[in-house]
Design a protein around this nucleic acid. Structure first.
Lengths: 338, 338
DNA sequence: GTGAAAGCGCTAACAT
DNA sequence: ATGTTAGCGCTTTCAC
């Protein structure tokens, strides 16, 4: 059916080994032989069969990215960054959505399908520290993303959650705000985005001598727009007074922003708002949203690099690495000084 | 290294063919033999090697989805829908981003990488009708999405752009609005989302006896939030009077909405707004956005089905099919009656 | 510097 | 109903 190395070899009058050598840039080939082979490849429009190469070499040239949901802007942007980083190294990316369902999150690590990939970038949302052992049983190279699991058996790339939240809170404090509400806290969790960000918030308050008031801290189910909206409604209904809000992600910040505006309050005059993630959208809302860019690009670049180093064996024997990406507070209208 | 069929066969005391038969649900196997093999598979934790199967069968079990950019919410949601549809059929999806760059859009159809997939879902944004011949040269099964190319050599799944835009315009007219601005038009293009939607707008105006006024029609470069914002700024600066806006996608609608609000106008009182696409976000903005759900799920389902039928040969000889998904006007606050 | 041949793990003829 | 065998297209020893 399609053109194989044999066809090329025949046309060039060489053996298939020589064709293989040319394709793989083997050094010791006589230039004229190389030219003859190259010409034959050109003439026939030959393309190496990646499946056959994969069977022989054990590599597929594909990695997978396991995330909760592409409809979540943060993950869509992470996926974009990962695909660019992978592309730069000649890798394709299969995206698998776990839907933040525990069984799927675990199942995706074990199924047949992981056979199709050389390595996995794994961003769990449900799995926690108690599940670390699950990673031990994965024989495919894997780089962990996020903050659900620390000190696992694999490389890990994540962000400076605590420092980022602290910087965001410091910023609000610097505007003279003292009653800073939080949306998205999960007091029961310490090792999670929520827990780490809450710690940063508390650090900043403590350093400024402001008391922590848990009536200002909202636990919402879903880190979505509607979750943020619900959190804000609950805050308003509680009668608590506040002059600023730190939402633990941008989606919640935007949901909260809507409710604040509906309530007739002005942003930032009555309530200043800061989000987290720096999703694209935050530059176009009314008002634009101050947020923390937690280093998505860097996370993607380093994660892909770590994975490639594990796949190639370059990093063989190197103990699990941990990389914390840099962050940056992006100031926009939602916290503009008057 | 890993467990193969031979290992299973040896343990079960059968030949490797029998193991293959069991795995592939071949009918005529004695139940006890099947059980023995199944037990051996279980015991060894055997997983078939998909690469080897792929080499042998010529199928990879992977399809690719070529889209402009995952950071665009419409495409992120399309990708989500496609992945669900593919998942239901046991297929994995490789996403490739063209970045809406012509060379990449064409290049992705030809490179080595397409070898890794059984079929392609192709959603070009730059390629046009003049490029139809490019599709002729693709030997991999391909289903075309979008409205850049019609009557091409492949199956095509798209939406009812004209009818959707007409319904949206009819809705605005039914509210008594007569000066309906358009954002996102491209008067030079007739076969494109912009052209088809503009036609629907004009149809509705004509049917209602309202004159078409091209000072109300904004051509913006980018169908993004910032494009929509720029379009609205331009409209306001022009001094044109309008009491409604039809934006040709939701991102532009949201950008325009921001500018309208900044200008101190009320939505929907002063200006009613309708978007197109029904991205998730439109349910959470302030006000929520009336929009056209153009049948994204249906598009994904049908496209994957068409592709699978082409890959399997089921649809061999069937001439290129065209499917137009149903649409639905989703009424929300941005066009609420007072 | 190049060729011959083995075999990656599987499926599909063909046999039995 | 099950076993034998021959490749799928490539890379990789090992010769020469």
């Amino acid at each position: 059916m399609s053109i194989t190395m044999h066809d090329v070899a025949r046309l060039a009058g060489v053996s298939i080994k020589t064709v293989s050598n040319v394709i793989n840039d083997y050094q010791h080939i006589r230039p004229e032989t190389r030219d003859r082979v190259t010409a034959a490849i050109e003439q026939l429009g030959y393309r190496p069969n990646l499946t056959a190469r994969g069977l022989r070499s054990g590599r597929t040239g594909v990695i997978s990215l396991i995330i909760p949901d592409l409809r979540n802007a943060y993950f869509a942007e992470l996926a974009d960054a990962v695909m660019r980083a992978a592309d730069a190294r000649g890798l394709s990316v299969i995206i698998e959505q776990s839907g933040a369902v525990r069984e799927r999150e675990i199942g995706l690590l074990g199924g047949e399908r992981k056979q199709r990939v050389d390595g996995i970038l794994y961003s769990p949302l449900v799995l926690g520290g108690d599940d670390t052992h699950i990673l031990d049983e994965v024989d495919t190279p894997l780089v962990l993303l996020g903050e659900r699991i620390f000190n696992g058996p694999t490389d890990h790339v994540t962000m400076r959650n605590t420092e980022g939240a602290r910087a965001a809170t410091d910023h609000l404090l610097s505007l003279g705000r003292r009653r800073i509400a939080v949306i998205g806290a999960r007091p029961s969790e310490s090792i999670s985005s929520a827990g780490l960000r809450l710690a940063g918030y508390r650090d900043a308050l403590a350093a400024a001598g402001v008391d922590y008031d848990d009536s200002l801290v909202e636990d919402v189910g879903d880190w979505s727009r509607s979750g943020g909206a619900a959190g804000m409604r609950s805050l308003l209904a509680s009668g608590a007074r506040f002059d600023a809000v730190l939402a633990f992600n941008d989606a919640m910040a935007l949901g909260a922003m809507r409710v604040v505006q509906e309530a007739g309050l002005s942003i930032p005059r009555d309530v200043a708002i800061v989000g987290f993630d720096d999703i694209d959208e935050t530059r176009y809302t009314l008002p634009t949203l101050t947020t923390v860019d937690a280093g998505r690009e860097e996370i993607a670049d380093v994660a892909v690099r770590f994975l490639v180093e594990r796949i190639s064996g370059e990093a063989q024997g190197v103990p699990p690495r941990e990389h914390l990406a840099g962050f940056r507070l992006v100031q926009r209208e939602s916290t503009a000084a008057e």
